[in-house]
Design a protein around this nucleic acid. Structure first.
Lengths: 188, 188
DNA sequence: CGATTGATGTCAGTTACTGCCATCACTATA
DNA sequence: TATAGTGATGGCAGTAACTGACATCAATCG
């Protein structure tokens, strides 16, 4: 007879998603999440650094995907092209989980605290992209700017993708946004 | 004889800056801030919604400046030009307070919580810029993208401006960043 | 079979933040 | 001039996020 059921971390993450969805982030206590997962509050904080982090479980995987794609891009690819490849890889990943993304985003949109956490994760992605570009020999200032721009495109496109009534292709939305960026910044 | 000294809010803000600078954000309690300001913890929370907000006192003024500049820009100005005018106005404002900005940024850089709050303020600025552009008749999608890009340029340039050894002109840095953005996104 | 490990439980403590009511100088109004 | 607000504050109890220290006990390793 086992002392604990396995997969405690996953159970906590699922319980949190459910409760945040049912009553909202603010109206959910960590004790309630732990109870639904059959664990204690203390154990929740062993798996997640705080009450918000449980919703940003997959952020590291996304960052790894982006960074690896940039690093593995052909040496001939310009910074903006390397980053575009990374965005496309991420787009394909999200396209397969739209229902989950929509539900999760609805929760985040209902809480300023969660929006703050989302923004710092995005900022961290921008920094990681910049770092990956630098490893390709891209100049410091170009790398930083390209990373920020890539994340701006991702952010805008993801927002449209999630809020769109009929499902669209996130990768295509990001391509459109980049094209639109070129138009916006074009000198007359 | 007055019951309280006037300027309680200002005293709290100054005490907070001092203490965050002396021992760091995490090692400072709200009770300590209130004590240095000659007030109580309860009064602190009447003036500032939370422990972080005290450092983001001037954010509304910055937003107003940006929005007003965009709204007042000549009707002939393209979205990117209207936004550039706003960034220049903000740049001039900051140029006069570099010492303060450097000190404040040093505090923020030492705390993840403060960075989160800074990011959501920047995101709010992007949204406000987009809204101001829409009032000028700019299409929804263009407005959103232009707002994000403007803030990306501001963020990158501000970072360089603050961390630079010798004082530079923030407005010039932002102009340079926009030009660099054009180069980065240019199709070959 | 004993020692170690790893995931968990228990519990006390700190601190951010909120709600509610009291205080009291100042001010407008009858 | 008496009275009724008003506004900024104090006091205090309460909730909940998070932390540190120590205990437990099944699984595993030597």
């Amino acid at each position: 007879m086992v002392r604990w059921e396995p997969g405690g971390q996953g159970r906590l993450a699922q319980a949190a998603m459910e409760l945040y969805g049912e009553r909202g982030f603010d109206q959910t206590t960590v004790a309630e999440i732990a109870e639904r997962a059959g664990l204690t509050e203390r154990t929740f904080f062993r798996h997640f650094s705080d009450k918000r982090e449980v919703l940003f479980f997959g952020a590291q995987a996304l960052q790894d995907l982006l960074v690896n794609t940039v690093v593995d891009a052909p040496a001939s690819a310009a910074p903006i092209d390397a980053v575009t490849l990374a965005l496309e890889a991420a787009g394909n990943l999200f396209n397969e989980r739209r229902a989950f993304s929509v539900q999760r985003q609805h929760i985040i949109d209902g809480s300023a605290e969660l929006q703050e956490r989302e923004l710092i994760k995005l900022s961290s992605l921008a920094a990681a992209l910049a770092s990956a570009l630098r490893r390709r020999g891209v100049a410091e200032s170009t790398a930083g700017l390209t990373g920020e721009v890539a994340i701006a495109i991702f952010k805008i496109s993801f927002e449209r993708w999630v809020s769109s009534a009929e499902p669209r292709d996130l990768t295509q939305l990001m391509r459109d946004s980049l094209e639109q960026l070129r138009v916006v910044t074009a000198t007359q």
